[in-house]
Design a protein around this nucleic acid. Structure first.
Lengths: 246, 246
DNA sequence: GGTGGTCTATTTATATGATCTATAGGACTT
DNA sequence: AAGTCCTATAGATCATATAAATAGACCACC
């Protein structure tokens, strides 16, 4: 019940009190800080975070929209079961990945990628516009530059995969852009560890070529190889203990 | 600028004013009602919908959380480009599907399903628990009952697909449960039209058997056939003019 | 003449207190 | 028991006041 310094909440994640509280409270819920005790009432939350009820209500409403909470008169505000959290919301995903980095979550995520991205590549081979191909090429170029140390490896990799997703010309696939960026960016440490052994620039180029050549099946296969490798590595790494990066 | 009767907003979608406004405003944005004019300020919105600023703010905050809006001082509240809308939010998806039923959106959605569900079936073949298999069987049983007219065809179909998604033991796949339900339920008319020609109960049973037999590849193929058929039908139906159900 | 700082109007953000509404759970009745 | 009614509680709504942020105008200075 120690009132939090407003400045502290504000500092957490830019912008303003509402977004600060959204982030702090969201993370707290995901971590499980409210697991055993009854979730505080609106007024208690306001006091706990040292903000007004308006701010509290708006933060709670946003968390409701993301599926983490529900509020009903006389029943109070309650945490929804994790199954109803919107995992494709970048905030929720980030909180989950940050809470206690779990190889399991990363494996689940890559099990998803192995379904999505190859199919996106196949669609891209059919629907990609010239501008999409340019974006893919640009991503590839950045990867090459990164090999020489002239660009960030992770950013380049993300740029490539995002470009393919967009090229699919399907809004549902394009949506994964944020999800993939968030997940890759948040799990930098781990992905770095397996990076050296995994997909090379040449493997990525194979995807690009198949798309450019308008060969859906080839594109699908090339992408599947790219991600399947990563997945294999994660699955074998499953029991490997986590340790800080050097 | 005609002030809306609060009771009217309240009626829109159960619960209370905030959720009523969320739904009405969300739908209006998705339809494109605010496309050419500048988006109203918080105060104007409140007047337009005949509610207080608090209600307005909370509705706007929820729409912000779903990616439809952004608000900054002095700049005002503005509609985000459709690419940043969270399509995996059931509200957003429902608004999109309801606005003006589009075969294109349905095709895009099924292009996603064809990636997700076969892979989910494969994972289910590996990870499904006894209780998951029971749920799948229950869904199948309902489909058989529906054939005899003793259950709802759509509900039964949804139950089956949702059961498979859950059986994948992967939260990301399980997440599609809501998305698939929403999409199927909203596009009843169209799916009914192609239902007769598409997947039969036997095809569904094939998926079930492959999962029960712990054969990932067989499960994947069986599910792909199921959804691939639907997708083919949609793609050929692309130019077919829309007409009301009889 | 352009560069950078400051000022201001506007809009959202925050705070607070009063009042309304829905409802869980108990009290009461049949 | 089974149904009905009551009531305390917690969220929902409203109204109003004040603070904070910033786009754009304005101005001083080099």
């Amino acid at each position: 019940m120690t009132a939090m310094d407003p400045a502290e909440v504000r500092t957490q994640l830019g912008r303003n009190l509402t977004y600060g509280m959204l982030d702090t409270l969201g993370r707290a819920i995901v971590i499980g800080s409210y697991q055993d005790r009854v979730f505080p009432t609106e007024a208690e939350l306001a006091k706990e975070y040292g903000v007004s009820r308006s701010v509290t209500r708006e933060a709670v409403k946003m968390l409701t929209a993301k599926g983490l909470l529900s509020a009903r008169p006389r029943q109070g505000t309650i945490i929804q079961p994790a199954t109803s959290w919107n995992l494709f919301d970048t905030d929720v995903l980030r909180w989950l990945l940050e809470r206690k980095f779990s190889v399991e979550l990363l494996r689940h995520f890559n099990q998803l990628r192995v379904a999505i991205e190859p199919e996106a590549a196949a669609l891209a081979a059919t629907y990609a516009q010239p501008s999409d191909l340019e974006a893919i090429d640009a991503g590839l170029k950045r990867m090459r530059a990164a090999e020489q140390g002239n660009d960030d490896t992770l950013d380049a990799d993300i740029a490539f995969h995002v470009a393919v997703l967009r090229a699919s010309a399907n809004p549902f696939y394009a949506q994964f852009r944020d999800v993939v960026s968030t997940a890759l960016r948040t799990s930098i440490r781990f992905t770095n560890r397996i990076k050296g052994r995994s997909a090379s620039v040449d493997d990525h180029a194979a995807v690009r070529d198949a798309i450019a050549a308008r060969k859906p099946d080839a594109a699908r296969k090339a992408m599947k190889r790219l991600i399947g490798d990563v997945l294999d590595l994660i699955e074998t790494a499953d029991d490997e203990p986590e340790r800080p990066a050097d």
